[in-house]
Design a binder for these strands. Structure first.
Length: 867
RNA sequence: GGGCGUAUGGCGUAGUGGUAGCGCGCUUCCUUCACACGGAAGAGGUCACUGGUUCGAUCCCAGUUACGCCCACCA
């Protein structure tokens, strides 16, 4: 412990500069902290002494955002409090450089795209560097090999990570920079692969050939957690099917899926269609007989109440298809275009002819053509009715998702397993959410899961799924025969590494093997940040000391992804919660209270506010927002924070400027004791607030006390501390010592929020870093104080206020000399004021102050000294 | 359609079952002995709306509205 001796240092000699300011403190101290290893994690600490933080690894895909500064400051404030409270804080930093955002940025930045079929070119240099998001169209991008592409990814992310680190250092995050990780590093790949293989061996990972939500731009499957709805224009087309008793009309927004129609569906209770259930109708144009079926999900009041089921227009189609055991007549390919071959079922020459015409077209063009044809034949009634409706998108994509049948890897997540779901809900109840109501979002998500977690992605820059498949005598893969690597050989790349018992020459050969080409979803790696950050594979000894982590800070938007998936993986791997606390930060809104986002173009780059208002100023703004609450980007608040930092420097310079009292000096005077009693209460309150993750409250009480300290107490004791007005040595020493005790404690109270200004002052008179000093304890100084003095400062301040008001009303300087004045006060107050009368006369420059009992506090009979 | 959160002077925010606090901004005044990156004083609010519980509601309850977010089976 570092702090036991802190209370001995009140009387240290101080060397404050003549002129103080906050300029340059960031550079000066961030370098000093690094050189002195102030935030270095001491791995010799016991598990009980460690406070570990599962820091969010920022996505290293380019631009920084003030939102980053906001939430990371919250975490840092907690880290600093815990460190000062005697914990050995494990505060690492990760970089999320794995996945689509990086791929996309590399494509644009270097003007390239990945073509895994190409060979590696060791001498490749990109056509240019520094392209922005708009400059490169797919057609202009140079195709390069996967290995070349990944090299460029790594090159770019290394640059981006340097920028992030520089920003974090300037902001004053107390991260241990010796503890960093990357989600694409070999260690991260090994962690991901090991966890996956463990899932596989426990039966938690499996593969399945099934309809999958598919992004046609990125040509990859996506998971439920990556979906978002977007309101899109569409149109209802009223289309007639030939039924046994005449036309049956349905309404559809996707007439191009007519050849994929496998049935019509209506609600079992819908009286209009009772006679049709069990019969068949004929699709227009394609002339396929399809059954009319009943299902509870059909909505009586929607459209005509009867809908066509296609393979697959939306996820409801998938449910119908599965539950009603319908045939698969999928017509959309991986590229979002209509497949070349007509599905089974279309047999008529006319139907085949029409299909041939739309084959290869985009969904959009196919729709146009089908509508034309339907109108020509009269199978479509009237014009299309424009509507606006929600459509599912991949959150990073810009074309609607299609549903394509593919073989994919899944991890069980409770979506199809009530027992697991209940376990996960129970685990969530044991996790301390800050604020508590955020737990509901977690529970909503878990209860709303509709399927297992699809983790395979048909992309390039990511962690390969570490399996191979045996090929049969015909050279066809046997997906039942999954070949896995030894744990010791991780990480592996199945496209270049060879499974045990095979040789490279057998790749792709009959009775040989092929490697899995898919990579894992980024969340499959991000869900392992405790294992990555803690050194699960690379440093088991450290891992045992930091896992389970104490804190997971994160944004509310990724409760369904990051928080949930991390909890799931930890539950599967260790049966434990990955952390005991989850601190959820709110959004940053622009001054118009709109969420900041790149698409709105209202993002503020964080380096600017730091340059303009100082790191302490920006941190003050961020720290003033409570967890879970949105905050406006507010430069005025940053100015206030900067002002506070400047005030601390000046007040400290003043308080430390008086002659140092003798070693045996004590705080004897009632007013000085009263001030320290107030401070003791503030320390207790701030400590309690911090303990319950309410850092805003801690800041608020400290700040409130501080302004009263400077405005009132400092003014009251100024003359006495100078030894003016015939005060005794004891009276003088009491004031000076009280000032120093207050400053010593106040600096430490503010240290988590304003690390630069407080460290600067600390360095004038103390040794070591304030950020390794002990968090203040009221018992260090308050036990010897007479509690009868409590409240005296407040009473004195009330009298000072009256004196100032009288001068303000008289429009004279606060320093104007007063010949005489009468202070009237109620009986219970007058005794207190008598105790502090000399200090009151000093602050008011009043030669003769008469104290008179009255019903209300009042200053009268002000007689100024004539000029 | 379901859920969660928020609503307090021009703006940003505390707070409590008993006459509403703070900061910014604003008005007026005060300069140089810690601080003009300053100091002092002042004006400014029927605590979103409607009911209910209560002696008494900004606070508790119900409903409404607005905003934000999450979720939803979206023909």
């Amino acid at each position: 412990m570092t702090g036991a001796s802190a209370s001995q240092n009140y009387l240290a000699k101080a060397a404050a500069p003549e002129k103080v300011g906050v300029e340059g403190l960031e550079d000066k101290w961030s370098i000093a902290w690094e050189n002195d290893g102030v935030y270095r994690f001491n791995r010799e600490a016991s598990r009980e002494q460690v406070y570990s933080i599962d820091t969010p690894p920022p996505t290293v895909s380019g631009s920084l955002h003030v939102g980053h500064v906001f939430s990371y400051t919250h975490t840092d404030v907690v880290a600093r409090f815990k460190r000062m409270s005697g914990f050995e804080v494990y505060y690492p930093m990760g970089w999320d450089d794995n996945g689509l955002p990086t791929e996309r940025r590399v494509q644009n930045f270097f003007g390239v795209r990945c073509d895994p079929s190409l060979p590696y070119d060791p001498s490749f240099t990109p056509p240019f560097e520094g392209g922005d998001n708009k400059s490169s169209k797919a057609a202009d991008q140079i195709p390069i090999s996967r290995r070349n592409f990944i090299e460029l990814c790594e090159r770019l992310t290394t640059e981006d990570e340097k920028q992030f680190e520089a920003l974090w250092r300037k902001l004053g995050l107390s991260v241990d920079w010796a503890q960093t990780y990357q989600t694409i590093s070999p260690d991260a790949q090994a962690v991901s692969q090991k966890a996956f293989l463990n899932n596989l061996s426990r039966g938690e990972a499996y593969q399945s050939l099934a309809p999958t939500l598919w992004d046609v731009t990125f040509r990859t499957a996506v998971a439920q957690a990556e979906l978002e709805d977007r309101e899109q224009p569409g149109a209802y087309h009223r289309v007639g099917f030939d039924g046994p008793d005449g036309k049956v009309f349905i309404e559809t927004t996707r007439p191009e899926l007519l050849p994929a129609c496998v049935a019509l569906v209506a609600h079992p209770d819908d009286e209009r269609y009772q006679g049709l259930f069990g019969k068949t109708v004929r699709t227009p144009l394609f002339e396929v007989e399809v059954p009319v079926v009943a299902h509870r999900l059909a909505q009586i009041d929607k459209g005509s109440g009867i809908a066509m089921i296609c393979t697959f227009g939306d996820v409801t189609d998938v449910i119908w298809w599965r539950e009603l055991d319908l045939p698969n007549r999928a017509i959309i390919g991986f590229d979002g275009r209509i497949l070349a071959d007509a599905p089974e079922g279309i047999e008529s020459a006319r139907g085949l002819e029409i299909f041939a015409e739309i084959a290869g077209k985009t969904v959009f063009s196919a729709k146009q053509r089908i509508v034309e044809l339907l109108q020509e034949t009269g199978d479509m009634v009237g014009d299309a009715k424009p509507i606006s409706h929600p459509v599912k998108f991949f959150e990073k994509g810009d074309k609607p998702l299609e549903i394509v049948s593919t073989r994919q890897w899944y991890i069980r997540n409770g979506g199809r397993d009530a027992a697991l779901r209940d376990e996960l809900i129970a685990a969530g109840k044991k996790l301390n959410f800050h604020p508590d109501f955020m737990r509901v979002r977690y529970e909503n998500w878990v209860n709303g899961l509709t399927g297992d977690w699809l983790i395979s992605r048909q992309r390039f820059f990511g962690v390969p799924i570490p399996v191979w498949y045996a090929l049969d005598a015909n050279g066809e893969p046997d997906f039942e025969k999954v070949l896995t690597p030894d744990a010791a050989s991780l990480p592996v790349d199945p496209s270049t590494d060879v499974p045990a018992g095979y040789t490279e020459s057998q790749r792709g050969q009959a009775n040989g093997f092929i490697g899995e080409v898919d990579i894992m979803d980024t969340w499959a790696t991000s869900s392992l940040t405790p294992q990555l950050a803690g050194g699960w594979i690379s440093d088991p000894e450290k891992y045992a000391k930091v896992f389970p982590f104490d804190l997971r800070p994160q944004g509310q938007d990724i409760i369904r992804t990051w928080l949930f998936s991390t909890l799931l993986r930890s539950h599967q791997e260790s049966g434990q919660l990955p952390w005991s606390n989850a601190a959820i930060s709110g959004w940053i809104l622009d001054p118009d209270r709109k969420k900041m986002s790149k698409s709105k173009g209202n993002v503020v780059v964080p380096a600017e506010p730091i340059d303009n208002h100082g790191a302490d100023g920006v941190r003050y703004w961020a720290a003033a927002a409570r967890l879970g609450t949105d905050a406006a980007f507010d430069e005025a608040q940053m100015k206030v924070g900067r002002k506070l930092a400047v005030k601390i420097l000046n007040a400290a310079r003043f308080a430390l400027g008086f002659e140092v009292p003798a070693a045996d000096a004590t705080v004897t005077e009632a007013l000085d004791q009263a001030m320290l009693l107030d401070l003791a209460a503030v320390i207790d309150e701030a400590t309690e607030a911090f303990a319950s993750y309410d850092h805003t409250k801690a800041l608020e009480v400290a700040e409130k006390f501080f302004w009263g300290f400077t405005d009132d107490y400092l003014e009251l004791v100024k003359d006495r501390a100078y030894g003016q007005g015939g005060v005794t040595e004891q009276e003088q020493a009491s004031a000076v010592l009280a000032l120093r005790i207050a400053l010593h404690n106040l600096l430490r109270l503010f240290a988590p929020f304003l690390p630069y200004a407080t460290e600067e002052v600390w360095s004038w008179w103390q040794t070591g870093s304030i950020h390794r000093s002990a968090w203040p304890k009221s018992a260090d100084f308050a036990n010897s104080l007479d509690v009868a003095n409590r409240g005296l400062l407040q009473s004195a301040a009330a009298a000072v206020f009256k004196i100032r008001k009288a001068k303000s009303d008289a429009q004279v300087s606060m320093r104007a000399d007063v010949q005489s004045a009468t202070l009237k006060a109620p009986a219970e107050l007058i005794g207190q004021l008598r105790q502090v009368a000399p200090d009151l006369r000093a602050v008011g420059h009043i030669f003769e102050l008469n104290l008179v009992e009255a019903s209300e506090l009042e200053l009268t009979d002000l007689v100024l000294v004539a000029e």
